[in-house]
Amino acid sequence: MNKTRHIGLHAIKVISHSMRSGSGVAFIFLTILIGLSLANLVVTPIELELITVEELQDSSARAIGIALATATLRASDGDDNQGTLTSRMENGDLIDLGMWARYLVIENPVLLSITVLLLGVVLPLLLPLGSFTVISGDVQHRTVRYLLPRTSRSSILIGRWLGSMILAWSLIIFLLCSVVIYLSIMIPSESLEDLIPWAGRCFLALFFLTIPYVSLGILCSATFSVPMVALLATVGSTIGVPLLSLSLQEAWEPLGNLLYLLPWGYSHELLSPTTHKVVEASAYCLLHGLLFLILALLKFRRADL
């Protein structure tokens, strides 16, 4: 049997096994529940007529503009030529950010944009739930030994990585479809013709965002033989990296670049109006994913199983 077929088989098996395992059920349930709760958080004020869509567009444009400014301008704080906020305003960067916020909330369906922005923050914390047992579960129970005479270690790892990815992407598609169908029925201002292309664009952003975080989960799963330790390591590093970089940056500016150990520093650019920035951010996501996958492969190949 060729290697591609082996990888496909491992991917299918890991999907069916994930749905039967406790962690898989928890992952599916929590992802959908939290995703719908985030959408609910955004839609409720409109449905209860506490605020109109136009008012939400105004206030969220401002809030998203500030968030984007904080995320983007801090990225090049170290650059002397563009160090101050004033100089950045003179360079026209803030106008770009204003355009970016406008693009997200005025030119495209605002409710879907805000939901996806919130998902972009929450998904990295949920994705490890779907991948932490992928390798470590079998290693802990020594059942992986029964597979090794029939297949290679790299096929197992790549197949399981692919299976975890497909499961995560399926959940994201399900979530986006539910939100789009709901919005198109209940909110008259959000038409299906606007929602579908934007949902496709949002899916692409989340598609690329998923790759590094699932790969990180697989790396931790291949590194630690106890699944709970793998989960703790994945979630810990996902939360720890931004916290650590922001606090260390206060002490010494270059340490702020630790943020780029994970996609936190550039993931917001996946929804940028500029195509080359989106392509760049997607390429970084792929590279991050590839790096974690190669490290996981190296670790798994040498592991004493």
């Binding site: 719908l36 609910n40 839609v43 409720t44 939100v179 209940m186």
Partner: peptide, 8 residues
């Protein structure tokens, strides 16, 4: 809440 909470 809204209908989406019911969907949930």
């Amino acid at each position: 809440g809204s209908g989406i909470s019911i969907a949930r």
